[in-house]
Write a protein that binds this DNA or RNA. Structure first.
Length: 767
DNA sequence: CAGTGAGCGAGCTTCCGCTTGACTT
């Protein structure tokens, strides 16, 4: 068929991912060996800057330590092959991977062929093999510029922070702007003042049907709302206008990395990293296409199988072929959208999580090829004879469900308007009677804090970061202590409700929860300090458009219009003088805030940020000021005087037990009792501020008894033991270990439960 | 990992993007 198929093993094909290698092997026959490089094989040396800024930014590349083995293997195979096909992805990073491979394997130009394909089908691969090209050095240079710039920024800014703020901190083009987003959102929330307004909803009756309509005005006070209801007592309600409008909804495009992360978060409550882990498994099993992509493109094969699948299951009317266009900034489109490899497989074998994520991908992919939903929207406006305000009723009915049969995209927005499904058939001029009219006090809500997934959405909109880095970036900013993912208990408040019913107005108070947060990203005190320092001194790099701007310059390099070293030089010269200037002339603002005076002794209470993080100090310029660290969930910008003083109520010394002191305090992992160098955690409903001596001893004794239980043995199973180890409780059986799930208490676990766990884990491993 | 907050200074930390293991509990 092809000239290259001459002798066994004359061709070596190198791709980036081993799963891809496996698939391609099937399409290519015996004369091709297909191997993977596992991504980049070389990177800038890490021990210093890795770039010689005095020698025209010459990069010092070394083979990454974890790639030494694979490089040696590839070298050996390459030397035995006649041709080496470099088949890494068709984008900036992929081109660079091919070039680095050519360099480290010492390959001459006439021994390599550069090929690319966007989908893994026999046709696409054959076409690629028939159309080889050379390595695009301009594109490689664009990658070198990207790499070198990130290194110059990161390895100059970070040491500056070590000097000015605290060791081991970090800064970079992506992470620092990520932290900025979270800090600025938090400050908006701190500034936000919630106000309440009165929203009026009427339940009208027409043609024997009840429907809801909202007043087109919200009252500022309960008094005004009350006065309006008074007017409604004897009012006539007339239909002023009825509008009917056809409308339609279209399905969302197939998944890319960021949208998969968002939907898995909203629909399945997966964290961003969890989504990627599960998707990786699906990919490795061949169930889905590659999961790190920014392309919404579907292969022709996928389009035709989706069509077949939809027509067979729902009928021809439900199918509509669609090609989506990628709209995100800086997309490089080396892959397809994330879709099932075989669209006729509705379900797969695997863990519950794998099945759920697969089902989500399947539905989204198929729905994207389905017909629009056809709706009819109705708006009825109702006027009264003694007020200028009007009631508006919104109705929406589905005339044809189309893609909605399969998939509805979730929204982040929590304030969804009330919409009637079917409205009664009323005519202009028709009189209505009001069954009930209610004015409810509604508080405005602050801008929402970011979740991991909504942060990814924002980063993608700004063109910052890549599909392969969203999850790692989120974990980096948390590891550095700039951001933490937390839950917050809400508070209760009472809202006023005025109800007009049977010509009588009643007032009542309704209690509601507000301010509860789940899995939201909060900036830490140190995150805020570092952010402010960077914005003060490096506003260019901290600008949300910085990445977009340099991306344009990388594009010029890729087109061959700019020398990459020239672009870097233009950036570096002013940047390094900013760095030198900051080293000499700046100090990070010492954060200090006076909260007030301690009511007990009148001494000033101040929040500060020190070497070990944020703390409160009582008494200044004294021989012995008192210190206390802020709790994990407290922030220097929001802590109050009362909260600060409460910190000094701990540690508490409850007295002596067995000749050792019993101390209660709050540590890194929450409240604890310390006794004789051992720690016992205090769990709710016990409270470290109020717990008494007797109860503390009880906790110590209970924990001791609990310890005595281990190792637990069962007389019916001599080679089975329940143990507690470094990573938590586990079962040891026939020299194999099995983790005990968190929801099962190892102190009371039964033998049957042990067998269950063993069976489940063994089954999973055998698959 | 459990209690620090002065200052000195050895030696360490750090970036973004491409990809999976090896961890075993």
């Amino acid at each position: 068929m092809l000239n290259y198929f001459i002798r066994m093993e004359e061709n070596l094909v190198i791709v980036e991912s081993p799963a891809k290698a496996k698939t391609i092997k099937k399409f290519l026959g015996d004369s091709f060996i297909v191997k993977s490089s596992f991504g980049h094989v070389r990177d800038l040396a890490k021990k210093d800057l890795g770039v010689d800024v005095d020698k025209n930014y010459s990069p010092n590349y070394i083979i990454s330590p974890d790639k030494k083995k694979i490089v040696a293997e590839l070298k050996k195979l390459a030397s035995k092959s006649k041709l080496v096909w470099l088949a890494s992805d068709e984008d900036r990073e992929g081109e660079a991977i091919s070039w680095h491979l050519k360099e480290v394997l010492g390959l001459k130009d006439d021994k390599i062929k550069r090929i690319v394909f966007h989908e893994i089908t026999k046709e696409a691969i054959q076409k690629a093999v028939e159309n080889p090209r050379n390595i695009d050095k301009n594109l490689v240079n664009a990658q070198q510029a990207r790499r070198v710039l990130d290194r110059l920024v990161g390895f100059n800014l970070s040491p500056l922070l070590w000097r000015k703020i605290k060791p081991s901190l970090s800064a970079g083009r992506v992470q620092s702007v990520t932290v900025r987003l979270i800090v600025e959102r938090e400050r908006e929330i701190i500034k936000f003042k919630s106000v309440s307004k009165y929203k009026v909803i009427a339940n009208f009756i027409a043609n024997g049907k009840v429907f809801k309509a909202e007043l087109n005005y919200k009252f500022d006070t309960g008094k005004e709302a009350y006065q309006f209801l008074e007017l409604c007592k004897n009012a006539e309600f007339l239909v002023e206008d009825v509008q009917k409008k056809p409308s339609k909804k279209s399905p969302a495009p197939p998944f890319i990395t960021s949208t998969l992360q968002q939907e898995a978060s909203r629909k399945l409550k997966f964290s961003v990293s969890q989504t990627m882990r599960v998707a990786q498994t699906l990919y490795e099993h061949g169930y889905i296409t590659y999961m790190r992509t920014d392309s919404v493109n579907l292969s022709n094969l996928a389009l035709s199988t989706a069509k077949k699948s939809i027509t067979e299951e729902f009928g021809e009317k439900y199918h509509k072929s669609r090609n989506y266009k990628t709209r995100s900034k800086g997309a490089q489109e080396a892959h397809e959208a994330i879709r099932p490899t075989f669209i006729n497989n509705k379900t797969i074998e695997g863990t519950r999580q794998e099945q759920k994520l697969y089902e989500l991908i399947w539905k989204r992919t198929v729905a994207s090829q389905m017909a629009d939903a056809e709706l009819e929207k109705t708006i009825i406006s109702v006027k009264t004879n003694n007020s200028k305000y009007k009631f508006i009723a919104n109705g929406e009915i589905i005339k044809f469900d189309g893609f909605l049969k399969l998939y509805i995209e979730s929204q982040d927005d929590e304030n969804i308007e009330e919409i009637n499904d079917m409205l009664p058939d009323v005519k202009a001029g028709q009189a209505l009677s009001a069954k009930k009219i209610e004015a409810v006090e509604k508080y405005s809500t602050h801008p929402p804090r970011y979740t991991e997934a909504s942060l990814v959405k924002k980063l993608e909109e700004l063109g910052i970061g890549r599909p392969s880095t969203y999850a790692p970036t989120i974990s980096t900013v948390q590891q550095r202590g700039y951001v933490s993912k937390e839950d917050r208990n809400g508070n209760k408040r009472e809202v006023e409700v005025y109800t007009l019913e049977n010509n009588e107005i009643k007032k009542r108070l309704k209690s509601e929860n507000y301010g509860a947060e789940y899995g939201k990203l909060f900036p830490t005190s140190i995150g805020m300090v570092v952010n402010d320092y960077l914005i003060d001194n490096f506003d260019n790099i901290m600008n949300y458009n910085f990445t977009a701007r340099i991306e344009k310059e990388f594009d010029e390099i890729a087109l061959g219009n700019t020398e990459w070293t020239k672009m870097i030089d233009d950036f570096y010269k002013p940047f390094i003088s900013q760095i030198e200037d900051s080293l000499k002339n700046t100090t990070a603002k010492k954060y200090e805030r006076l909260l007030g005076n301690n009511p007990e002794n009148g001494k000033p209470v101040v929040v500060k940020v020190g070497r070990y993080g944020p703390y409160v100090q009582i008494g200044e310029n004294e021989e012995e000021p008192k210190f206390a660290s802020l709790l994990k969930e407290q922030n220097i910008e929001t802590i109050t005087l009362d909260e600060a003083i409460a910190l000094f109520r701990l540690p508490r010394n409850l007295g002596q037990f067995e000749n050792e002191e019993v101390i209660v305090a709050i540590g890194k992992f929450g409240p604890y009792i310390r006794h004789n160098k051992k720690f016992y955690s205090i769990k709710k409903p016990d409270d470290p501020y109020t717990i008494e001596y007797d109860r503390a001893i009880e906790i110590i004794n209970k924990s001791r008894e609990n310890e005595k239980l281990f190792p637990r043995e069962f007389k019916d199973a001599p080679n089975l033991k329940v143990l507690k180890g470094r990573y938590g409780p586990y079962i040891s059986y026939n020299n194999k270990n099995y983790k005990i799930p968190r929801k099962i208490d190892p102190a009371t676990i039964s033998l049957e439960e042990c067998w269950d766990i063993i069976k489940k884990i063994d089954n999973k491993n055998n698959k």
